[in-house]
Amino acid sequence: MLDYSTMDTPVGPFTVVVSRAGAVRAAGFTTEVRELMSLVHPVLLEPVRAVDRTVVDEPVLAYLDGDLTAIDAVPVEQHTAGEFMRHAWRVMRGIKPGAPVTYTAFAGLSGRPAAVRAAAAACARNPAALFTPCHRVLRTDGSLGGYRWGLGVKEWLLRHESGD
């Protein structure tokens, strides 16, 4: 059984789905649990139930209050058939707040400098927004690019992390 909760944030609702062990399986700026669960690989799917709070709500609240590293230690369970994407998600977790990188730089950090499209796909398919910080990856020209939860959310997160 997976637990989920939804909390209010300055940019709207944020829902997180966690395993019994407290690992994030899905997260995003939405109230739509079905939408989140559609991002989770089938091997990690389980029934979900609503709870008042999950074990990761406190780190999220601390992050929103300005402790930008509070979410770093939260475990994440992500799965995909491709080794590059699994590796890219691990690398993405190492991108520091306030230090966004471009898709090209992210591809290089992931060990495949020419795989810019694959790096972008890792961002687009990321089921654990915020914890696996795809919002910290930008277009080569420095513009925002896309974000599943809206460019306004991505922009707010980047401003929050830069201290603006």
Rank of each mutant, 00 (worst) to 15 (best):
A128R: 06
R112L: 03
A99L: 10
G111W: 13
A119Q: 02
A99C: 10
R93T: 11
I71H: 02
N126Q: 13
P113R: 14
W89K: 10
D67F: 03
V56Y: 03
V60E: 02
H135D: 04
M92G: 03
L109P: 01
T54C: 13
G94D: 10
A88D: 07
P59S: 09
S110F: 06
A88V: 08
L61E: 08
T69Y: 06
G108Y: 01
T132I: 07
A122D: 02
V116Q: 13
I71G: 01
P59K: 06
M85G: 00
S110A: 15
V91Q: 12
A118L: 10
C134I: 02
P100Y: 14
A118N: 12
G98C: 07
T132D: 03
A88C: 09
W89M: 10
R117W: 11
L64Q: 02
A107M: 07
E83S: 13
R53A: 14
G82C: 14
A88M: 09
A62K: 15
L68T: 03
P100S: 13
I95R: 14
P133S: 06
A62V: 00
D65S: 15
V56D: 01
R136Y: 04
D52P: 00
T102L: 10
L130P: 11
A121L: 14
E77A: 14
V76S: 10
P127M: 05
A114F: 06
A128M: 08
E77H: 11
F106H: 08
N126M: 15
R86N: 08
C134D: 15
L130E: 03
A114T: 08
K96T: 00
P100V: 06
T54N: 05
K96N: 02
R53G: 01
G111S: 12
V137T: 11
A120Q: 14
T69E: 11
G82N: 09
D72V: 01
L130W: 07
T102K: 07
L138N: 01
D65C: 09
V76E: 11
R93F: 04
G111Y: 14
L138P: 00
I95T: 12
M92P: 02
D52F: 05
H79E: 08
P127N: 06
C123W: 03
